[in-house]
Amino acid sequence: MSGIATQATPAPAHPHPHPKAVLARVGVTLGTAVFIPAVLLWTTMRTFNIAVAVIVGLAWMVGVMCWRHATGRPVSGLVLLSLGILTVKTAFTLATGNTFVYFVQPVFADAAVATIFLGSLCTARPVIARLAPEFYPVSAEVAARPQIRALFWRLTLMWGLVILVKAVITLWLLQTLSLSNFMLIKGGAIITLTTTAAVVTIGWSFAVARRQGLLHRA
Rank of each mutant, 00 (worst) to 15 (best):
4 I>V: 14
4 I>S: 01
4 I>G: 00
5 A>H: 10
6 T>R: 14
7 Q>G: 00
9 T>M: 03
15 P>N: 07
17 P>D: 07
19 P>W: 03
21 A>F: 07
22 V>W: 07
24 A>T: 12
27 G>W: 06
32 T>K: 09
33 A>K: 08
38 A>G: 01
40 L>P: 10
43 T>I: 11
44 T>C: 15
47 T>G: 03
48 F>W: 13
49 N>H: 14
53 A>T: 03
54 V>P: 08
58 L>G: 04
60 W>G: 10
67 W>F: 13
68 R>P: 02
74 P>L: 15
76 S>G: 07
80 L>F: 02
80 L>C: 10
86 L>G: 11
87 T>H: 02
91 A>E: 02
93 T>P: 00
100 F>Q: 04
100 F>E: 02
101 V>M: 12
102 Y>I: 00
105 Q>A: 13
106 P>D: 00
112 A>E: 06
114 A>I: 07
116 I>W: 12
116 I>V: 15
122 C>L: 13
122 C>K: 08
123 T>D: 03
124 A>M: 00
124 A>C: 00
124 A>K: 10
127 V>D: 07
129 A>G: 00
130 R>D: 07
133 P>S: 11
138 V>R: 02
142 V>I: 14
142 V>T: 08
142 V>S: 10
147 Q>I: 00
160 G>I: 12
162 V>M: 12
163 I>T: 15
164 L>E: 03
166 K>W: 15
171 L>P: 01
171 L>H: 09
171 L>A: 15
171 L>N: 05
172 W>T: 12
173 L>C: 09
173 L>G: 03
175 Q>W: 11
177 L>Y: 14
180 S>P: 02
182 F>W: 08
184 L>M: 15
185 I>Q: 09
193 L>M: 13
193 L>C: 05
195 T>Q: 01
195 T>C: 07
199 V>F: 04
201 T>C: 11
202 I>V: 12
203 G>S: 10
204 W>H: 05
206 F>W: 00
209 A>M: 13
214 L>C: 06
216 H>Y: 10
